[in-house]
Design a protein around this nucleic acid. Structure first.
Lengths: 350, 350
DNA sequence: ATGAAAGCGCTAACAG
DNA sequence: CTGTTAGCGCTTTCAT
């Protein structure tokens, strides 16, 4: 196996010491212009490029950050990665991606694999299974080892680290308020089981909006979907069935708020099949502004989550922490940044 | 900044040498059971874990592979990453992601950044701009340095490396044949400019299918969209306009083949707005089986690209090459693996 | 059974 | 202006 050019080779062939070469390459004033030129010319000739790994070992930092997400086949996470990558690259960092696939053990394995020196810090959104188990040991361990960590979207209060979230409750409230203002009088919500933090919070926003308008919530209208593997296979059938039943049992439902765009799109599909006209008979608002929302029929009004902003904000916070750690600066208290949401009005509302 | 436990520390505290500790930790027969036990116990106590970076430096391999894609906000690429990650993880590899964002310079920068020792090999799909320029120097350089490289989907013949592709031509042919068999007599194609290899090949398949059925191609029905930034912003307006014109000028078009799902979905939208009934008045088939296809109205018949299979196949080929290189095995000739496509029939065809 | 030493590629303090 | 040396964390050969 051929090996890349090293300082050592350059030194030998130029008949100077390794450190001279090293210094020359960085234009050290210690070195004569003459040698600098010779070294550089030769280095270029042999296409010398420094070995990142050696630098990482030497500097005790890798200039790469690890992002661990539950699922990459998901527009929102993809946007976040994009934001992270953009900011990180601008600061000279690489991004290494780990997929937990919503599984606790995958999350643990991925974190351990990367925590062993491969990365300078983590950006994570928690796997569903981890939220269910409420076992955050691998997080606290990471923190104990003083590896910086910032969580986004699916966060939990017990873990003392920087966080980037969206105001889920408020976003949901805005959505439901809008529905009400546009004339919806009986509004259902399609949400997740409570252990998914964002689902819980969005449900809370829904309830608050109702309360503020003096509307009593109706248990039947709150559909908590067990979204195991939702994005994986055709487990959407379950969802379809539930929506159909909802619409059958409560024919006067004229508004639906869904906590993600997939639920919203499926709901629209079922409603259309049942003869509903959207938005005239039924108005729908989703959460997360992805591909589906833009291209559904009708196009879906939705609460935008600004994934890319979340990503770059998370990267910014993380890199701050890394600097703090590397330079032994005093530790700032952890912060939680809330990215504001906003409603994007499209065809599914009046 | 707190530092992680190292062999050195263990050695000092246990009052043995570093090499003893190292050996004990791997159960070397050279070491007495007694010391092994002591060392291990103490290591566990201090939560010792070997430093990946040091190992990488020592072993001259990183156990991580770099994947560079044009755009992550894209279902197909996302599937590929998933496949790569799955296979790579099973072999103990990590995956580091670089985004070229369809830009030549980003592609170059990303590759250089990673080629400096951070990764053992690349998996790449070429940026649009690179295809336009036809400047593949950074690829050949990488290859010259004997860094293994496998390309997928957007490949070019001039680069001598392993490749994973889909039979674009055949897939397109199947799509168009299907359209014809189901009664479509005048079929348009929505494709990309020719410099995008997959667009070109799919166009070729379209033309062949027509020829095989004795149908003469009509220039007006071949719409080559300049898809700069297509997925970025609302540049879809252009596409919409073109489809509208097509349908206006050729009212007897009753079949559309689109080289990706977005084009297909947009075409359906425009057609529906113009009063067409799909699939009765107009049948549509797309390429790539993503979220949009599944949830469009009507659901979109499409040629599946099997992104995840492509990803894991690419990872498999790459890791083979890495092994070959590391173990100085004789070099196999480069191969091109063709993943077979198949038609998924849904609501947009009869 | 244990340890010393060299080396992976690089930097930097220190000496000359 | 240039070179020697030590060290980042680890493995491995070769003494002892």
């Amino acid at each position: 196996m051929k090996k890349r050019t090293t300082l050592k080779q350059l030194a030998r062939e130029l008949d100077v010491s390794i450190s001279t070469v090293s210094k020359a390459l960085k234009n050290s004033p210690e070195i004569s212009q003459d040698t600098i030129d010779r070294v550089k010319a030769f280095a270029k000739l042999l296409n010398y490029r420094p070995n990142n790994i050696a630098l990482s070992l030497k500097n005790r930092k890798t200039k790469t950050i690890g992002i661990i997400i539950p699922d990459i086949v998901h527009h929102f996470f993809t946007k976040v990665i994009k934001g992270v990558e953009k900011y990180a690259n601008s600061k000279g960092y690489n991004v290494i991606v780990g997929l937990s696939n919503e599984s606790f053990s995958n999350e643990v394995i991925n974190m351990e694999m990367l925590a062993n020196g491969s990365i300078d810090g983590f950006i994570i959104s928690m796997a569903r299974e981890t939220m269910q188990r409420q076992d955050y040991q691998h997080y606290t361990e990471t923190l104990n080892e003083e590896i910086p960590l910032v969580m986004f979207d699916r966060v939990v209060a017990e873990i003392p680290c920087d966080k980037v979230i969206v105001d889920d409750t408020k976003g949901a409230e805005i959505a439901v308020n809008t529905l009400i203002n546009k004339g919806a009088t009986k509004i259902a919500i399609l949400t997740t089981k409570d252990y998914v933090s964002v689902g819980r919070l969005r449900t809370k926003g829904y309830l608050e909006a109702l309360k503020n308008h003096g509307i009593n919530p109706i248990r039947d209208l709150i559909i908590k979907i067990d979204d195991e593997l939702l994005y994986e296979e055709d487990h959407l059938d379950v969802l379809e069935k539930q929506v159909r039943e909802l619409l059958l049992n409560h024919t006067d439902v004229n508004g639906i708020f869904a906590v993600n765009e997939l639920y919203a799109v499926v709901a629209m599909k079922v409603a259309k099949e049942m003869g509903y006209e959207i938005p005239n008979d039924l108005q729908v608002i989703g959460f997360t502004d992805g591909m589906l929302s833009k291209h559904a029929t009708p196009t879906l009004s939705t609460i935008s989550q600004h994934g890319e902003s979340m990503g770059s904000k998370a990267a910014e916070l993380l890199i701050q922490r890394i600097d703090e750690r590397v330079n032994d600066l005093p530790k700032e208290p952890t912060k939680t940044v809330v990215i504001s949401t906003n409603l994007i009005q499209r065809g599914s509302t009046k």
